[in-house]
């Protein structure tokens, strides 16, 4: 099976509460919290599309779209 390639991190900032679960459990250290405490993808190139963040986010605030 072809390796998944990231298209985009779809982040719903209105729903994100900045708990940091996605940041902590990302195996490639792709995500960070911004000044307002909301998540953003600071190193999207490193993303391996494992979707751990999408699965664990308690707030349904992050989705991984693959190409």
């Amino acid at each position: 099976m072809a390796k998944k390639v990231l298209k985009e991190h779809i982040i719903n900032k209105d729903w994100c509460k900045g708990c940091g679960i996605c940041v902590f459990f990302c195996p490639k250290n792709v995500l960070e919290l911004d000044k307002e405490g909301k998540v953003f993808a600071s190193r999207p190139k490193d993303c391996i599309c494992c979707k751990q963040c999408e699965l664990m986010c308690p707030d349904f605030a992050i989705e991984i779209e693959v190409q």
Binding site: W15, K17, C19, L55, M56, C57, P58, F60, A61
Partner: peptide
């Protein structure tokens, strides 16, 4: 109804998912 009422980091959102 989102964002839901649970606190930041609450496990209940994960159970819902």
């Amino acid at each position: 109804f989102f964002p839901h009422i649970w606190c930041p980091g609450c496990g209940h959102g994960m159970v819902l998912k």
